[in-house]
Design a protein around this nucleic acid. Structure first.
Length: 230
DNA sequence: GCGACAG
DNA sequence: ATCTTGTCGC
């Protein structure tokens, strides 16, 4: 059960959503997180770009074997529009419903989006982790807030810091999951720090560009979205 | 005013 | 995010 259900609402206005982020962002905690035994990836697949029909999936795998432990998926709607900075209000309601159908406890959440690498240091990964009081890590496919400092080497697991353009504060890292692959953007969500987040995402590396828990959640969600449409 | 803009 | 075939490469 979530500690802060308000962070999972999808029936708020944009103004209310921003107010909620401002109210809760200070409760995010960054600290070392010991290597967990499992990681749970979550993702959503939509039937249409702008519409609400979607399927959320949660997949728990063992670390470091990446063997499947449990998977859950739920179909529903995401009525809140996509607004840069407010992704949480579009996705977390459905995501939370998928999470609550898991039988096994969740040790750390890997979210397909940013954590503190966000204009208000409160991306969807942070909001999800805080809502449930569970450690979370953001792992996004594209940069959103901040810029990469310096160059990024070509090899697997090469990293480069992502820092706030105004303050210079390091918010996360860009990291290649495979040689020469486009990097993913890793930032702490909640109850983890940058170093821990990087080590955990590394431990979840498989053979693709995305960490295995997220790749599997993505695959599961789109498979079911397709099935529900037919 | 002109870009930038997670999914 | 999603619409989409073949094609280049490991």
């Amino acid at each position: 059960m979530p500690s802060f259900p308000a962070l999972l609402r999808d029936d708020v206005t944009e103004a209310e959503a921003e107010r909620l982020q401002g109210e809760f962002k200070a409760r995010v905690q960054l600290r070392p997180l010991p290597m967990p035994r499992t990681a749970t990836g979550v993702d959503i697949a939509y039937q249409t770009t702008s519409s609400a029909a979607a399927v959320a999936a949660a997949v728990t795998v063992a670390i470091p074997s990446m063997k499947l432990i449990e998977t859950a998926q739920v179909a529903g709607s995401c009525p809140f529009p996509y607004v840069p900075g407010l992704l949480a209000f579009r996705e977390l309601n459905l995501v939370s419903r998928a999470l609550q159908t898991l039988d096994q406890p969740v040790e750390v959440l890997l979210y397909d989006g940013h954590g503190i690498a966000h204009p208000r240091r409160f991306g969807a990964a942070s909001q999800l982790g805080l809502a449930f009081g569970i450690p979370s890590i953001g792992c996004a496919k594209n940069r959103f807030h901040g810029s990469m400092a310096g160059g990024l080497e070509a090899g697997r697991f090469a990293t480069a810091p992502i820092r706030d353009d105004a303050t210079g504060e390091v918010l996360g890292v860009a990291m290649r999951m495979q040689d020469n692959a486009k990097p993913v953007y890793v930032s702490p969500g909640h109850l983890a720090d940058i170093a821990s987040a990087v080590e955990i995402v590394k431990a979840c590396a498989g053979g693709s560009r995305l960490p295995e828990p997220i790749r599997q959640a993505d695959a599961t969600a789109r498979k079911h979205v397709r099935f529900f449409e037919e």
